[in-house]
Design a protein around this nucleic acid. Structure first.
Lengths: 228, 228
DNA sequence: TATAAAAACTGACAATTATCATATAATAAA
DNA sequence: TTTATTATATGATAATTGTCAGTTTTTATA
């Protein structure tokens, strides 16, 4: 199994602030795991008891609403860390994580890393910054969800997907989501999401080929997102 | 000016984990301030450069949407702390805080307390827990906002207000919000909020006298919030 | 107190969005 | 490949919500 000390992914997240000694300890106890597309990494109510470090792939983090629809809160990709919250409050997860494509994930047991939070101020400061940043993002998402129309939210989401996952040389987004997942990110019915995608396509703002989405007219999309 | 060491409010938040020495230092540099109803404590873009500790009163924390409506993200009351995020990332505030009634607020300059974050693990751990908890709440609010109808959200909000602010012996809620603020919490038009409140009143679920709201039928309200 | 301003309320209507039904296309399984 | 299953798409319709206009009530101010 590869070592954390040499792992490139680590440099992308809070784990970069661990000392060499801490890293060696973490490396010796971590487990690496392949997760198939569609597989559930953890579910609401599960005790995670550790930290996931995503080496490869993408997963969605969602929560079931009382009306029976799964709201996707955010997407997690290579380099991101999953389970920071449970590390801190040691409560059961209130979210569910599901692989969107095949993944490589490292798992670090809670007891091996939780003490570093109080012993290594750099590490705790980094986690603090992560959480503060997540909270800021959460506020922005909330405002959008509360105040924007479904069309605005869809436009915004497409821009965000492009920012987070990028696109290939033909401008095709590097992330492939089902229409249902798209609907569950922006908080609408699948049919509504499909209809609006078709509308954007008709207006030549995007092009669609199956799950391949290409943004053709970014400025227009940004204008729609802001309500023009 | 009263001293932090003897302040009861402190016991309600993360500041309780400061050592005696830290508290004495904080106390000597803090400033106390009276804020009138309607006054803006800080606005989006302001550099807060410190931590607010609420001794008394309630304020709303909001963010302006690109469509021009102010979305209230949360309410802050006596014992709560304001500005944790800016303490950590030292960025300009992306939220606005406005007094909902007359307030008493203590302000602790950033430089006097930020070093305690790395020096006092208990303190940083408490802030971490605060942020993790806020994030969990934010997720729940997001799911509600995305998946529930305005009526469900209004019902839920009334229950939350009762939980957070309580009620007097006649079951009148201890918080008095304008109809506009209510609308801006649940993310709807003021008229829609008013209409739904009237509907609840007509169905004898609540009673209304100006800004006094009384929950008459809590079970019914909870059922509505969950979609029945 | 009189007056002005703001907040609360109501109605009418338009726009948005959800739901249900059904068709077609894509994917997985036999 | 054939079949079954799932995903995507579209139409029709109903329900929800927003917008605008106007009225009444409350609150603030002269």
């Amino acid at each position: 199994m590869s070592k954390c000390e040499q792992c490139i992914v680590r440099q992308l997240n809070s784990l970069k602030s661990l000392t060499k000694d801490e890293l060696i300890r973490v490396s010796s106890c971590k487990t690496s795991r392949t997760i198939k597309k569609g597989e559930v990494i953890f579910d609401e109510g599960d005790h995670i008891n550790g930290l996931f470090c995503i080496s490869d792939g993408v997963c969605k983090v969602s929560k079931m609403s009382s009306n029976g629809r799964d709201q996707i809160i955010y997407l997690v990709k290579k380099g991101d860390i999953l389970g920071e919250r449970s590390l801190i409050n040691d409560e059961a997860a209130n979210l569910k994580a599901t692989a969107i494509n095949d993944m490589e994930v490292c798992f670090i047991p809670r007891e091996e890393i939780v003490s570093d939070l109080s012993k290594n101020p750099n590490f705790s400061m980094n986690i603090l910054k992560d959480l503060a940043d997540s909270l800021k993002k959460a506020d922005n998402v909330l405002v959008d969800m509360a105040q924007k129309t479904v069309k605005q939210r869809l436009a915004e989401m497409l821009i965000n997907l492009d920012t987070k996952f990028g696109h290939d040389t033909d401008n095709v987004l590097n992330i492939h989501l089902s229409r249902e997942d798209i609907a569950n990110i922006i908080g609408t019915a699948t049919e509504s999401a499909i209809r609006l995608l078709s509308e954007f396509k008709k207006e030549k703002i995007i092009s669609l080929k199956g799950k391949n989405i290409t943004i053709i007219n970014t400025p227009k999309l940004k204008k729609i997102a802001q309500g023009f």
